[in-house]
Amino acid sequence: MTDVDDIRIAFDEGSLTTLRIVLGLILLGVALDTRVADFRRAARRPWAILVAVVAQFLVLPAITFVLTLALDLRGSLALGLILVACCPPGNVSNILTHRAGGDVAMSVSMTAVGNVLAIFLMPVNVAFWGSMHPTGRELLREISLSPLAMLAEVLLVIGLPFVVGIYLAHRFPRFADRARRVVGPVAFLGLGAVILVGVANNWAIFTAYIGLVVVAVFLHDALALLLGYVIGRAARLPEGSVKASTFEVGIRNAGLGLLLVFSFFGGLGGMALVAAWWGIWDIVAGLVVAAVWRRRSGVSPRTDEVAARA
């Protein structure tokens, strides 16, 4: 069997454009559900936001780096986990926090701040941790990754839709509220379709190598969720904020990672497999955790917190 580091997965320019549009719509959906008041709320609770930011952008990439060394992963698989760890959260974290009976308002604030910071921190984090990895650094040298070029791509996919969405939410709140109910689900269905088409077009590669990433992704996802929980507890956040922290750190926008794999890493096989499987397993694991949390606490999702943001 060919080394996974030598595999390149085909993804034509039309598919890449579709993926950019879909991810832009996902971030637009996040922004349409964000209000300027969310940033004010975050400023009033800086400790909780700081905890989530440190966990996402400092601790999680570091833990991921150690995990790749402990598992002795091939370069492309290691870079895939590092890339996903550096991705921002998505609004799936808000949905899961809601289902778990957590602090939805805090979750939305964390997501908003996290996505803004990710525009600048993600390219730096990927370049730094990737260049530190003993096998990943060789692949990065071959690819000649440019953090500035990645910054431009992230600005296009995250920054622009986010600014447009927040403007619409602020200027036309009723329209934004109706639009987000359509944009979010349609965008996620579109992302699922793009991934399924990509898997179908590369089925032989997927079935041959997916076994290499299942254990790594399972452990990585579990560590990410656990980190969000532990750091929230250690910071003595309220129970609802601990739930928000758990999902903000544990849920990553792997779809964005997949786009970057094809835009900057030439469809590197291990990276693409990690990002694709992470995006699927992440949601499954998150739903399980939310269901267990909700059953143990014996409460329904906090609709009062949702109403408070309306």
Rank of each mutant, 00 (worst) to 15 (best):
L16K: 03
L50C: 06
A43C: 04
L227S: 09
V261Q: 01
F11C: 12
D177S: 14
R236Q: 12
N201P: 06
Y209E: 06
R296L: 11
V261I: 09
A193I: 14
I9Y: 01
V108N: 00
V126Y: 01
L19H: 05
G14F: 13
L237C: 04
M271Y: 06
A105N: 11
A85T: 10
T303Y: 13
V230C: 14
T111Q: 06
L140V: 02
V124T: 12
G130I: 10
V242L: 01
T135F: 13
V284L: 06
V215M: 12
V261E: 01
D33Y: 07
A127T: 10
G165E: 00
P134M: 03
V242G: 11
A112M: 01
T303Q: 10
F264M: 03
F57P: 04
V124S: 06
E13R: 15
V261P: 15
L268K: 13
V274K: 12
L73M: 12
M150H: 02
N253V: 00
P161W: 00
S131L: 02
H98A: 13
M122W: 05
M150L: 06
F175V: 13
S109G: 08
I158N: 15
A276F: 00
I21W: 08
V194A: 02
A310R: 12
S300K: 10
L227Y: 09
A291H: 11
L273S: 07
H98G: 11
L287S: 11
L191A: 05
Y229N: 12
S93D: 06
T97A: 00
I7Y: 07
L219A: 13
R295I: 05
H220T: 02
A37N: 15
P147T: 06
V53L: 03
R309N: 08
A200V: 15
L67K: 00
V197T: 09
R41L: 05
L71E: 05
I166F: 14
A254T: 01
W277R: 09
A31S: 03
L189H: 10
A244M: 02
I119C: 02
L227F: 08
R296T: 08
V4N: 08
V186F: 10
R74E: 15
L27D: 02
V92Q: 13
D38W: 05
L148Q: 11
G250V: 03
V22D: 03
A290K: 02
V59D: 02
T2P: 10
A307W: 08
E153H: 10
L155I: 09
R45I: 03
D304C: 11
V214G: 03
L156G: 10
V59Y: 07
F65H: 02
I280T: 14
T135Q: 04
V126G: 04
R180K: 15
P61S: 09
V213I: 03
A62R: 00
L117E: 00
V66Q: 01
L168S: 03
A169V: 04
R294H: 09
P61N: 02
I166A: 12
A118M: 00
G232W: 04
L268G: 08
G159Y: 00
L73G: 04
